[in-house]
């Protein structure tokens, strides 16, 4: 889901957002405090309700952050046609967010108990925590919703038009700036929600996002920048490969294997799993 957000931003904007993963962490923290402090203590909701509410809070936090970063960084830098500077600016935002959280929450990891993490389901002889089932289910739902949105709604089509050719789309009465802002907000909201989902699974610390982001980039590249189907496929593929690596090589080598795969992919098919090769039009 994180990778999907990245790919969406890349597809429409042609920009990499290094701070994206920190939106995940912020989402996780928002969810954590909503669930454990606000919803249960102030509103007196039961655990499950509190957790669901926290997911929406995280979604909102992600969306707000996206809006802010778009206004502060992407919008002013957009028309300079420069690949490097927006990328550096998002690295700056990332450092800022990580350390702001560090200042607020401290370096000690939090234990985020979701009601679903306590329960386990059994299918055959394999046990799943309900949380991991929830992660998969909500991710799948979000991905399906996003996919449907891009394919079938007017806005989604407009977004794809902007992604293909910003100027022409502009001429057809589509306001590209508004749509780009919308994309970032959607992608960032996704990241926030991913935070709420992953919070109970990962260790919740200000730098949790940083460990996710590099892998998310790998997935985005393997899937082909800006290609949604490719990204989904690559996400699954990387998951499977990680599982195999853990099984046969040990968990220490996960990153090594994933990135070796990334480099291999870049040599063999630089445009990703699905997209076909294009020659630059001179």
């Amino acid at each position: 889901m994180v990778a999907l957000g990245l790919t969406l931003i890349y597809g429409v904007l042609n920009q990499i957002n290094f701070a994206h993963a920190d939106f995940v962490t912020v989402g996780a923290f928002t969810a954590f405090f909503t669930a454990t402090r606000f919803a249960t203590k102030v509103l007196g909701l039961p655990d499950t309700g509190a957790y669901l509410l926290s997911m929406f809070a995280a979604l909102g936090a992600g969306a707000l952050l996206g809006l802010a970063v778009n206004a502060a960084v992407f919008a002013p830098l957009r028309d300079r046609g420069d690949e490097l500077r927006p990328l550096i600016a998002t690295i700056g935002v990332s450092v800022l967010l990580e350390n702001a959280q560090l200042a607020l929450f401290g370096p000690i990891p939090y234990q985020f108990d979701s009601p679903f993490a306590r329960e386990t389901l059994r299918i055959g002889r394999i046990f799943f925590s309900a949380q991991s089932v929830l992660v998969v289910a909500v991710s799948a739902a979000a991905i399906a919703a996003l996919y449907g949105f891009m394919r079938f709604t007017f806005l989604g089509k407009a977004l794809r038009a902007v992604a293909q050719d910003r100027e022409t789309a502009g001429l057809m009465g589509i306001n590209p700036n508004l749509l780009i802002a919308l994309t970032i907000v959607i992608a960032s909201a996704l990241a926030g929600m991913a935070g709420a989902l992953l919070g109970p699974v990962l260790v919740l610390s200000p730098f949790a996002g940083a460990s996710v982001i590099v892998k998310a980039f790998a997935i985005v590249i393997i899937g082909g920048f800006g290609n949604m189907q490719g990204t989904i496929l690559a996400g699954i593929l990387v998951g499977v490969i990680e599982a195999f690596t853990v099984q046969y090589l040990g968990s220490g080598l996960i990153d090594l294997v994933v990135f070796a795969m990334l480099l291999l992919m870049l040599v063999l098919r630089p445009t990703g799993l699905i997209a076909e090769r294009k020659e630059e039009n001179v």
Partner: peptide, 10 residues
């Protein structure tokens, strides 16, 4: 540091 970096770029 993060703020400075972002501001310089902007």
């Amino acid at each position: 540091y993060g703020i400075a970096l972002t501001l310089v770029v902007l």
